[in-house]
C-alpha cells in the first residue's frame, strides 16, 4: 500500500500496518501475511478513503488480521465477525465494512451468521482465508478439511465431507464469489476490489498454506511446498459452477470468479419496502450521510 511516493527506507505496506505490532505472530511460510498484502493492493486500487473502511475479524490465526491493519479494526468473538460487521454497517451505511477471518471462524462456529448475511445480502465483503484446519488451537479438523486429511482430532484422517465455500456462499445468495490461492495475489487483489465495489454480500476465499499444522501433519512439506503445489495445480475457471469446485485432499484447485450478479442489498430492500408501505412518513435509510445518534 503506497502512501504516495515509494520510499527507499520504508516498506510500502507500512502505511497500512500497525508497525508497532510487527513482526506478527504468524509462522514462517504461513500465507496470511500475503493475503493481507493482497487486501492492501486492492485498497491501493480502490482509492477509497481509508478512514471509512472498517475491518472485522473473529478468532483464530486469520482473526489476528484486524489487529495488524491500520483501519478502524475490530477483533470480535469467535464466529461473530459477521454480526459485528452487520451492526457497524447498519448503524452507519457510509462505512465500507470488510470481514477478514478464517474458515473455522466463518463457516463452523459462524456458519449461521454467514448464511444469513448472504441470504439478506448484507453489504459486506467477506475475505475468508481457508487453510483447511484449526491452526491457532493446534491443528484440529475444520469444516473445510478435505476428506482423508490428518488433523489432531482426526488422527486417522478426516471422514466428514467438507464445505465447499463458494457453493455455500452462492446457494445462500452472495452476489460475488471468487476463490484464489495465496499465490494468486494480484488476482486475489482484483477480486477483493471488485467485491468491495459490489453492493451486497461478497465472498473471496483465499486458499492459504498452513505450514506448522496442515502441511506438517499431512507430510506436505512446508508452506513453500504448498505454494508450489498451488502454482502447479490451480485451474483458473471463471464462471465455473460453484457446485463443481469441491476440494479433495491434494486435488487440483479450481480458482476464479464464480459468481457476479445483482440483488438488492438489505438496506435497498428495507428502503423499497418501507417507501412502498409508508410513503412520505418514511425517510430512506442510509442514503444521506448517517446522523450521529448520541441522543
Amino acid at each position: 500500500m503506497s502512501n504516495g511516493k515509494p520510499s527507499e527506507e520504508h516498506h510500502p505496506m507500512e502505511a497500512l500496518l500497525r508497525m508497532d505490532r510487527i513482526p506478527h505472530i504468524w509462522c514462517s511460510t504461513c500465507g496470511l501475511g500475503t493475503s493481507v498484502s493482497a487486501f492492501a493492493l486492492a485498497l491501493e486500487d480502490l482509492q477509497y478513503d481509508l478512514d471509512k473502511i472498517c475491518i472485522v475479524s473473529g478468532i483464530g490465526c486469520t482473526g489476528r488480521v484486524a489487529g495488524y491493519v491500520k483501519l478502524d479494526s475490530f477483533h470480535a468473538t469467535h464466529g461473530r465477525a459477521i454480526p459485528f460487521a452487520t451492526g457497524l454497517k447498519l448503524a452507519n451505511p457510509q462505512l465500507k465494512v470488510v470481514v477478514f477471518s478464517g474458515d473455522g471462524d466463518l463457516i463452523a462456529i459462524g456458519g449461521n451468521h454467514f448464511i444469513h448475511a448472504a441470504r439478506r445480502n448484507m453489504d459486506l465483503t467477506v475475505i475468508c482465508v481457508n487453510n483447511f484446519i484449526y491452526a491457532m488451537t493446534g491443528g484440529q479438523v475444520a469444516p473445510t478439511s478435505p476428506l482423508g486429511a490428518s488433523c489432531s482430532t482426526t488422527p486417522y484422517g478426516n471422514y466428514e465431507r467438507p464445505f465447499n465455500i463458494p457453493h455455500l456462499a452462492e446457494s445462500c445468495g452472495a452476489v460475488y464469489v471468487a476463490r484464489w490461492t495465496a499465490l494468486h495475489l494480484r488476482r486475489t487483489a482484483k477480486s477483493i476490489a471488485e467485491a468491495m465495489r459490489k453492493p451486497g454480500f461478497s465472498v473471496v476465499e483465499i486458499i492459504c498454506p498452513c505450514s506448522t499444522l496442515y502441511a506438517r501433519r499431512n507430510r506436505l512439506g512446508d508452506g513453500l511446498e504448498l505454494m508450489k503445489f498451488y502454482h502447479e495445480n490451480s485451474i483458473i475457471k471463471h464462471g465455473a459452477d460453484p457446485r463443481d469446485v469441491d476440494i479433495d485432499f491434494q486435488s487440483p484447485i479450481v480458482v476464479g470468479k464464480f459468481v457476479d450478479r445483482d440483488r438488492p442489498t438489505f438496506i435497498d430492500g428495507y428502503n423499497r419496502a418501507m417507501t412502498a408501505k409508508l410513503g412520505e412518513k418514511f425517510e430512506p435509510y442510509g442514503v444521506a450521510p448517517a446522523e450521529v445518534h448520541d441522543g
Binding site: 461473530r80 459485528f84 452487520t86 457497524l88 452507519n92 448517517a290 445518534h293 448520541d294
Partner: peptide, 13 residues
C-alpha cells in the same frame, strides 16, 4: 454482537 458493532458505529443500540 450486532449491538456492539452498531454502538461502535455511533448508534445507541
Amino acid at each position: 454482537c450486532a449491538l456492539i458493532g452498531a454502538s461502535w458505529a455511533g448508534a445507541k443500540s
